[in-house]
């Protein structure tokens, strides 16, 4: 089992900074997700951990072993890092059957044939592929190839498992069941996992901690609950979950909604000047009788279990989500009042 430590990791391609100053301490057995839009640097970071890309600056340590130190010019090749990895394309070798694919890392370690077969079969049992042992990849479905890739990554009992968007090529149903399967296997083996994804619900449901990335920079590292309820900045608030941003002005201990000088919220971060208020759609209540702000019901999208409202307040549309049974209570054009709860505030980043 292994801890992972990245300190001051940079990756530059010429003048372009793909990853800038990445720092993290991952505990043994922790499940970490790198989450962010495409091109944010998450895959590059993963490839630096694996050893496929060289960091321009910084130190990477796996367990108690330094694997990359840019300052000393030290760089350990991928095959010497003892890591398991699952690729987005699965990368299951088409010229080998399932047993040979999964057993390959053990073959490299010169594990005797009998023991190798035993360990491969144990792995195949873990991923529910025992009856497919003799098949070739082109006789397997995408989901089954995925399991082969997972079994191959785990068979040598690595301390660290890297997963690069492993579920993105699967259909929606399979994706959901694989999520729980991967989580269960991780808990059973107690392995440290780095999981790269752009799907926030994957990151939220599986991770102990999430690293939110954007434009090559780490925006926030935290537990899913903390990231959702207390995002570090406007970008994180916007990327994780749904949110309404309302322009505001901070004066002293209070933040005033722009244009409504009588409505204000606390200013815990001591922001000065232009600010932004952020409130999640489920934290807004609608009423016909009275509330903080007045608006007009503009549109309603009925989704069965919930209703997604657009309410026009001054020049801005506010999005509100409430339970589906309220659908018939309002009509387009109705005058309504809104109350905000759990309002977050950020400096205006423009």
């Amino acid at each position: 089992m292994a801890e992972l430590k990245l300190s001051h990791i940079y990756k530059k391609f010429g003048k372009v900074v793909a990853v800038g100053d990445f720092n993290i301490d991952v505990a043994d057995g922790e499940f970490i997700s790198f989450l962010g839009p495409s091109g944010c640097g998450k895959t590059t970071t993963l490839r630096m951990i694996a050893g496929f890309d060289k960091p321009t600056e910084g130190i990477i340590t796996i367990g108690d072993r330094e694997v990359s130190n840019a300052e000393k010019g030290f760089f350990l090749a991928p095959e010497k890092r003892g890591i398991g990895m699952v690729f987005q394309s699965y990368a299951v070798w088409p010229h080998m059957n399932v047993v040979d694919n999964v057993g390959y890392p053990l073959k490299i370690q010169n594990v005797p044939k009998e023991e190798r077969l035993k360990r491969v079969m144990n792995m195949l049992e873990l991923v529910h592929l025992k009856e497919y042992a003799e098949r070739f990849p082109n006789q397997l479905s995408g989901g089954q190839q995925q399991r082969v890739a997972l079994a191959r990554a785990l068979v040598a009992q690595p301390g660290l498992l890297l997963l690069d968007e492993p579920l993105s090529n699967l259909d929606a149903k399979l994706r959901e069941s694989m999520r729980f399967e991967i989580s269960a296997i991780q808990k059973e083996l107690g392995i440290t996992v780095i999981y790269v994804t752009h799907d926030q619900s994957e990151a939220m449901t599986m991770s102990d901690r999430i690293v939110v990335m954007s434009m090559g920079k780490v925006q926030q590292i935290g537990k899913p609950y903390d990231i959702y309820t207390n995002p570090a900045n406007q970008m994180v608030a916007d990327f994780i979950g749904l949110v309404n941003f309302i322009p505001a002005i901070a004066k002293g201990d209070r933040i005033f909604m722009q244009g409504s000088e009588n409505i204000s919220f606390p200013n815990p971060k001591q922001i000065a000047g232009n600010a932004v208020l952020a409130v999640r759609p489920e934290n807004i209540t609608i009423s016909k009788t009275g509330g903080m702000v007045e608006g007009v019901m503009h549109h309603r999208f009925y989704m069965g279990d919930s209703v997604d409202y657009r309410i026009k307040v001054k020049e801005q549309f506010i999005r509100v989500i409430q339970k589906g049974s309220d659908y018939t209570a309002y009509h387009n054009g109705d005058k309504v009042f809104l109350d905000f709860e759990n309002v977050m505030s950020f400096e205006n980043e423009g």
């Binding site: 398991g84 990895m85 690729f87 990368a91 070798w93 890392p105 890297l162």
Partner: peptide, 27 residues
């Protein structure tokens, strides 16, 4: 050829030359 097929061999512990022999050449 999909380069991750070779990367998968590298991360499995195979040297570049062994990867060439075990994966690239047969494919």
């Amino acid at each position: 050829m999909d380069p991750t097929l070779e990367e998968a061999a590298r991360i499995s512990g195979s040297s570049p030359l062994k990867t060439l022999w075990d994966v690239t050449l047969p494919l």
